[in-house]
Design a protein around this nucleic acid. Structure first.
Length: 880
RNA sequence: GGGCGUAUAGCUCAGUUGGCUAGAGCAUCAGUCUUACAAACUGAGGGUCCUUGGUUCAAGUCCAAGUACGCCCACCA
C-alpha cells in the first residue's frame, strides 16, 4: 500500500464532493426511515459572496447535519438564497447607469426581466462558494425566495393575514429613504452615534403680544431644532401646561413667517420638558415621530413638505423645489434676515440613516401596508417562555423578549420593483381588493368587466418572504410529505444580528400558519472578528477571506479551526496561529494513518487475537472520548467537540498508544498479541475517522477510502457510540501508573542532563507492579533493566503512588544535584500536606462537606505523607 | 436612559451542576534527526483567575457593588 507523504485536501475535495452528491448522500427522503432532523439554511443574499460569517454559520450546520445523518437520523439541510430586494435592485440599476439607461425609462417589466437575467448569470456565486466548504445541503431542494412555490406562499400569507385583519393599509408616519425612495421598517434604520451638529433657535412672533404669569409681556416664542427646514411643516408649538412663562399663551397663535398659516400653541405635558431649552417645542407632525404623537393628541393638521426624493414640495412655499439640505440653509438665512434667529449651539445626536443607502432617513407621512404585531407577538413570546423553543446560549432570549414585548407594527411595503408584488388591486375609486390574482379578485367581489383594476405598484419587504422560510421551503401551502416530516425543524443556526429581522419573524409566522414553532433550538453564534477583536472591514483591510484561507490551509483544517473557536457567548477571533496548529493536527492524523498502514498489511480479521493491557486501555479511553464528544455535540459545545477530539487523537492515541504498541508490533513473537494490537489500531482509528468526519469531511473520507474493511463513504457510516468500546478500569489504572513512572524517569533524565540514549536501570522493591511493562519502559524512556530491590549506590529516587523507585546513577550524577532535586520535590509535597491537614483540622469542613470529598482528602493526605516519608528517607540515605 | 456580554499565563482562549495543586495551543527556555510525523519528540519556566465586599466547610465558578472594554435597544426638541 502506497500512502502519499502528506495529505492533499484540495485533491480530496475534488474527489469526494461531487461523488457524494452524485451518490445521493445529500438527498433526504421524507418517506425513508429515521427520526427527522432538519435544518433550513439562513439564506444568504443572492448578491452576496462568502465571508467568514457565512463560513462559520454553514460549517456549524454541516457539522450537526453530518453528525445526525451518521447517527441514523433522517437528516435534511435545505439550502437557498434570498432575493435581497434593495441590494439586488441596486446592482442592476448600477449596471444600467453604466450603460446610460434608467429603470424608469425601461419600465417595470423590462427592468425585472433584466434582474432575472442578472440573477441567472451571477446570482449563484455564493452557492458555488458554499460548496467549497463541503456543505452537505440537499441541493435538490434549493430554493429562492422569489421562485414560484415561495411566491405562492407569500401571496397566501398576505391574503390570510389580510382577511384576519393582521395586515392593514394606513397612513402613518414611516421612515423614508429619500435616496432609494422607499419606505423602510424601523429595523432598517441605523443610528449614527455621536453625530455632531447644531441646535438652532428661532422665534415665532405671536399673533398678538400677551402678558404672562411670570410678569413678562411676550411677543414671540422661541423654539429650537436640529432640522430648521421642518418648520415649513410646523402646525403647532407645544409648551408645558404648568409652565408660568407660557400658560397664558396656550390656545393663542403665532404667525408663520413664510407660509400663510396661524399656528396654535398647545399644552402637552407628555412631550414637553420645561427644563429643556426654552421649554417650547415646534411641532411638525408629518416629519417627526414625537410630533406625530402630539399631532394625534391635539388633532393637528399634518403637512407633508417633502417630495419622495427629499426635495421640498409646494408646501415649502418660497423654498419649494430645494433639496432638504439646501432648504435648511435657505430657511436659516431667511429667518436671520427677518431678525428671527435666536442663536445656535453645538449638539451631539444620533443621526438615523438608512441601513442600505446610508443617507439620513426622513420621517414621512405616508400610506403603506402594515402587519399588526400585537396578536402575533404574544404566542411567539409564549413559545420561548414555555421552552418549546430554546435559545442557546439562553441569554439571547432577553434580547428577543425586549424587542417582542415592545414591538411596533411592521411596515412591509417597499417602493421598489424587485420583490414580491403586493397582491392588492385598486379600482378607480380607490377601493382595495386583496386576492391571489386579478381574476380571483374580480370573481370574488363580483366586479363588472368594465371596472378598471390596477395592482398595487409596491413590493413587500424582503424579510416578509424570509419569515416563511422554515415552512415555505418544504412546499407550503401544499400539504407535502416533507412539510409533515421535517417541520418543525430541529435547530436554527444563525448570528445575533438577525434575531429581530429574521428569527423573531420566523417564530410568529411559523406559529400563525403551522400552529407550531419553526424550530426546537436556536443556536446563536458570534461574529467572526480579526485576531485583535476588530470587526472585519474592507476599509480596515483586516478581512480574512474564507476561500483564500481554504486555498491556503485546506478546507478540513479551516473547518476545524472555526469549530474549535466556536465557544458559546464570545466573539470568535480568527487566529492564524490556531489555524496553523490545526493544519498540524491534520498532518498528525495523516502520519498516524501511515504508521498504521505499515502494520496492517498482514492483518487478518479472522486470526486468533488477544488484547493486551494497552489495547484495552486505549479502547477504554476511546469509550470516554466518544461519550464526551457526543455530549458536547448535543449541547452545541462545538469547541469542546474539537478539543476533545484533538486531545484524544494526539495526546492519547499518538503520544501513548502508538508508542506503546510498537513493542508488540515490532518485537513481539506472539502472533495473537500482534494481531490483537493490529486489531486495536484499526478499531480505534476507524472510530476516530468516523468521529472526525462531521468536522473534517474530506480528510476522513480520504482515510476511509484507504482503510481496510470499510465500505461506501464514511459520510454514510455510523457514528461511534461509547458502548462500542469496553470501558476497562483495570487497564486504565495500570497504564496510568506506567505513565507516571515514565514521566518521572523522563523528568530525571532531562534534569540530570542525561542524553536520551543513556540506558537506565529501574529498581524497586515493588518492581513487580511493572511486570510485563519492560518493553514499554524501554521504548518510552529507555529503561533497559527492571530490578527488584532497594537502593544501591548513588541513585535518583522518585515515588509514584506509594512505590519508591531508584535509578542507579553511580558516577553519572553528583549527590548534590540529586539532593537539590529531592528538596524541591519534598517542598512541594509538604505544601500539599499542609493544605490537606488544614482542611481536615477544620471541624466544619469535616462535618459539612460530603463524606466522599472528605474521604478523598484523607486518602490523598495519607498518600502524600507516605510519599513524603519515602522522599525523606531517600534524601537521608544520600546524605548519610 | 434601558438591557446584554466580556475580563483567567507574554498572546489567543478553555474551565458543565461550587470540591482546583487553575488547563490547552502559540510564544519562551533546555534537550533530542528515537525506524508515522522536524508540519515531530521530550522536559521546564510562566498566573493576586479585573477590584472590593458577601454567601459557604469550600469561590475562577454563586451574590452585590465598582472599574475597563464591547454590543443591542430607545432617545429631548
Amino acid at each position: 500500500m502506497s500512502i502519499p507523504k502528506y495529505y492533499d485536501s484540495a485533491l480530496a475535495y475534488e474527489k469526494f464532493y461531487s461523488a457524494w452528491e452524485e451518490a445521493g448522500c445529500f438527498t433526504a427522503d421524507p418517506k425513508a426511515d429515521g427520526e427527522p432532523y432538519s435544518i433550513v439554511i439562513p439564506p444568504p443574499n443572492v448578491t452576496g459572496s462568502l465571508h467568514m460569517g457565512h463560513a462559520l454559520n454553514n460549517t456549524l450546520q454541516d457539522v450537526l447535519v453530518r453528525y445526525k445523518r451518521m447517527d441514523g437520523f433522517n437528516a435534511v439541510w435545505v439550502p437557498g438564497t434570498d432575493h435581497a430586494g434593495i441590494a439586488t435592485q441596486w446592482i442592476v440599476e448600477k449596471q444600467l447607469r453604466a450603460e446610460g439607461k434608467d429603470r424608469r425609462e425601461m419600465g417595470r417589466e423590462a427592468f425585472l426581466k433584466r434582474v432575472w437575467e442578472w440573477k441567472a448569470e451571477s446570482g449563484g456565486t455564493i452557492i458555488h462558494q458554499l460548496r467549497r466548504l463541503g456543505v452537505s445541503c440537499d441541493w435538490s431542494r434549493e430554493r429562492f425566495t422569489m421562485d414560484e412555490g415561495l411566491s405562492k406562499a407569500v401571496r397566501e400569507v398576505f391574503i390570510r393575514y389580510y382577511e384576519d385583519g393582521i395586515i392593514y393599509r394606513a397612513q402613518r408616519l414611516i421612515n423614508w429613504d429619500p435616496f432609494a425612495q422607499t419606505a423602510l421598517s424601523n429595523l432598517e434604520v441605523e443610528n449614527e452615534e455621536d453625530f455632531k451638529t447644531e441646535i438652532w433657535s428661532f422665534a415665532y412672533p405671536l399673533s398678538e403680544p400677551a402678558l404672562c404669569e411670570d410678569g413678562v409681556l411676550r411677543d414671540e416664542i422661541v423654539v429650537a431644532t436640529t432640522r430648521p427646514e421642518t418648520m415649513l411643516g410646523d402646525t403647532a408649538v407645544a409648551v408645558h401646561p404648568e409652565d408660568p412663562r407660557y400658560r397664558a399663551l396656550i390656545g393663542k397663535t403665532v404667525r408663520h413667517p413664510f407660509v400663510d398659516r396661524e399656528i396654535t400653541i398647545v399644552a402637552d405635558a407628555e412631550l414637553v420638558d420645561p427644563e429643556f431649552g426654552t421649554g417650547a417645542v415646534k411641532i411638525t407632525p408629518a416629519h417627526d415621530f414625537n410630533d406625530f404623537a402630539v399631532g394625534k393628541r391635539h388633532n393637528l393638521e399634518m403637512i407633508n413638505i417633502l417630495n419622495n426624493d427629499g426635495s421640498l414640495n409646494e408646501e415649502g412655499g418660497p423654498f419649494a423645489g430645494l433639496d432638504r439640505f439646501d432648504a435648511r440653509t435657505a430657511v436659516k438665512e431667511k429667518l436671520a434676515e427677518l431678525g428671527l434667529e435666536r442663536g445656535s449651539k453645538e449638539h451631539v445626536m444620533a443621526l438615523p440613516r438608512s441601513q442600505r443607502s446610508g443617507v439620513p432617513v426622513e420621517p414621512m407621512l405616508s400610506t403603506q401596508w402594515f402587519v399588526r404585531m400585537e396578536e402575533l407577538a404574544a404566542p411567539a413570546i409564549d413559545a420561548i417562555e414555555t421552552g418549546r423553543t430554546k435559545f442557546v446560549p439562553k441569554t439571547w432570549e432577553n434580547t428577543y423578549y425586549a424587542w417582542m414585548r415592545n414591538i411596533q407594527d411592521w411596515c412591509i411595503s417597499r417602493q421598489l420593483w424587485w420583490g414580491h408584488r403586493i397582491p392588492a388591486w385598486f379600482d378607480t375609486d380607490g377601493n382595495v381588493y386583496v386576492g391571489r390574482d386579478e381574476a380571483e379578485v374580480r370573481a370574488r367581489h363580483k366586479l363588472a368587466d368594465d371596472v378598471e383594476l390596477n395592482q398595487d405598484e409596491d413590493v413587500l419587504d424582503t424579510w416578509f418572504s424570509s419569515a416563511l422560510w422554515a415552512f415555505s421551503t418544504f412546499g407550503w401551502p401544499e400539504d407535502t410529505e416533507s412539510l409533515k416530516k421535517y417541520y418543525p425543524t430541529s435547530v436554527l443556526i444563525t448570528g445575533f444580528d438577525i434575531i429581530f429581522f429574521w428569527v423573531a419573524r420566523m417564530m410568529f409566522s411559523g406559529l400563525y400558519f403551522q400552529d407550531e414553532v419553526p424550530f426546537k433550538d436556536i443556536y446563536i453564534h458570534a461574529l467572526v472578528r480579526d485576531e485583535h477583536g476588530q470587526k472585519m472591514s474592507k476599509t480596515k483591510g483586516n478581512v480574512v477571506d474564507p476561500l483564500t484561507e481554504i486555498d491556503k490551509i485546506g478546507v478540513d483544517a479551516f473547518r476545524f479551526t472555526l469549530v474549535a473557536l466556536a465557544a458559546q457567548g464570545r466573539d470568535i477571533l480568527w487566529n492564524d496561529k490556531r489555524a496553523e496548529g490545526y493544519v498540524k493536527f491534520q498532518n498528525k492524523v495523516w502520519q498516524a494513518f501511515k504508521f498504521i498502514g505499515m502494520h496492517i498489511e498482514d492483518y487478518d480479521a479472522d486470526a486468533p487475537k488477544e488484547l493486551g493491557v494497552y489495547d484495552k486501555w486505549i479502547l477504554a479511553r476511546l469509550h470516554t472520548a466518544v461519550a464526551n464528544i457526543r455530549q458536547a455535540m448535543e449541547e452545541y459545545r462545538f469547541n469542546d467537540v474539537a478539543s476533545e477530539l484533538y486531545a484524544f487523537v494526539w495526546h492519547e492515541f499518538c503520544d501513548w498508544y502508538l508508542e506503546l504498541s510498537k513493542g508488540t508490533l515490532y518485537n513481539s513473537t506472539n502472533q495473537t498479541a500482534q494481531q490483537g494490537a493490529k486489531h486495536t489500531l484499526l478499531t480505534v482509528f476507524n472510530a476516530v475517522v468516523r468521529i472526525m468526519h462531521p468536522i473534517m469531511p474530506f480528510l476522513s473520507e480520504e482515510l476511509w477510502e484507504r482503510m481496510p474493511n470499510t465500505n461506501g463513504f464514511v459520510m454514510m457510516a455510523s457514528y461511534p457510540k461509547p458502548g462500542d468500546f469496553a470501558s476497562n478500569p483495570e487497564s486504565l489504572e495500570q497504564v496510568r501508573f506506567l505513565q507516571e513512572v515514565i514521566v518521572e524517569v523522563r523528568r530525571i533524565r532531562a534534569e540530570m542532563e542525561l542524553g536520551n540514549k543513556v540506558e537506565l536501570t529501574l529498581r524497586s522493591a515493588d518492581a513487580a507492579k511493572l511486570h510485563g511493562q519492560e518493553q514499554g519502559l524501554k521504548d518510552l524512556c529507555t529503561v533497559t533493566t527492571l530490578e527488584v530491590g532497594g537502593k544501591e549506590g548513588v541513585s535518583s529516587t522518585f515515588v509514584v503512588e506509594g512505590v519508591t523507585f531508584f535509578i542507579p546513577l553511580e558516577g553519572v550524577v553528583d549527590i548534590e544535584a540529586e539532593v537539590t532535586r529531592l528538596n524541591k520535590k519534598i517542598e512541594q509535597v509538604e505544601k500539599s500536606i499542609g493544605r490537606l491537614e488544614g482542611r481536615l483540622s477544620n471541624k466544619k469542613y469535616v462535618d459539612n462537606a460530603p463524606a466522599k470529598i472528605v474521604q478523598e482528602t484523607r486518602d490523598s493526605l495519607s498518600a502524600e505523607k507516605d510519599t513524603h516519608a519515602k522522599l525523606l528517607k531517600a534524601r537521608g540515605e544520600l546524605e548519610g
